Simulated scan of single mutants.
Amino acid sequence: MSLWHVTLPVLACLVLTGCSSGTVDASSAVPHAGSSSSSVPGSHNSPKDTGPEGAQKPEKSGKPKPAASPTHVSIPSIGVNSSLMRLGLNEDGTVQVPPAEKGMTVGWYTGGAVPGERGAAVLIGHNDTRFGKAVFHDLKKIGKGADIAVRNDRGAELHFRVTATETVSKNAFPTEKVYGATNTRTLRLITCDGAFDDQGHPVDNLIVYADRS
């Protein structure tokens, strides 16, 4: 299934339905079904849309050089210091989340942009899992202007500054705003937030918006 043909309600709700009060992990989380569907807006770069880190510089053969992969994220103001695992899509077309046993690890959604290139790069982390507090448990404490550093596999460290935070209902997730195409180099961090429903799933998502500094 193409990365660009994910139904919006499923994507919005499965971003982090794996967060729980300690009874439900990512593998058993069930997305909330929606009645309408559309395509996820693409935010990948074209070969001509190069970032400042030279992710698309041609090699001697003339072929584009593969984009650098993000490997680590740190947010000093809230004590986050994590390697990055790659997240794609599940067989049913929903977005993967880190498994519960890796609750202290942040994931990078590979269907979005590479951090530092034009477009929206999305990092996903748990608030809590059945094992306890997780990597983004204190994300709600992050302030405007806070520094987020992302290191890639070529040794470059890219810095982003928080511009805004938003708490939204999972039933009204702003997919276009978070995943949609943009000419700027942006970063979005997503975790669960809010009260719990009858199945132990938080009803809201917390979204952090940041721009390349």
Rank of each mutant, 00 (worst) to 15 (best):
N152D: 13
H44E: 11
R86V: 15
V178I: 09
P66A: 03
K102L: 02
T191G: 08
L123N: 04
H159T: 09
S69M: 14
D49P: 00
A210Q: 04
D92R: 09
K65L: 08
T105L: 12
G112Y: 06
G42E: 11
R212K: 13
L87C: 12
G88T: 02
D193M: 08
A113K: 09
G111M: 03
G112Q: 00
R161H: 12
D138F: 12
D49V: 13
V95R: 03
A68W: 05
P31Y: 10
G119W: 01
A26N: 06
S38R: 14
T191S: 13
P31G: 01
M104K: 15
V73E: 03
L206S: 09
P99Q: 07
H201C: 03
G88R: 04
K133R: 13
A156H: 08
D197A: 07
T163E: 07
Q96C: 01
K140L: 10
G111E: 05
Y109S: 02
P31I: 04
H32T: 14
L189N: 05
P115F: 09
H5A: 14
P52A: 14
A181W: 13
I142K: 09
K102I: 02
G180N: 02
V168L: 12
F196D: 07
D138I: 00
C19M: 00
N205Q: 03
N45G: 01
T94D: 13
D204M: 10
A26L: 03
G88Q: 06
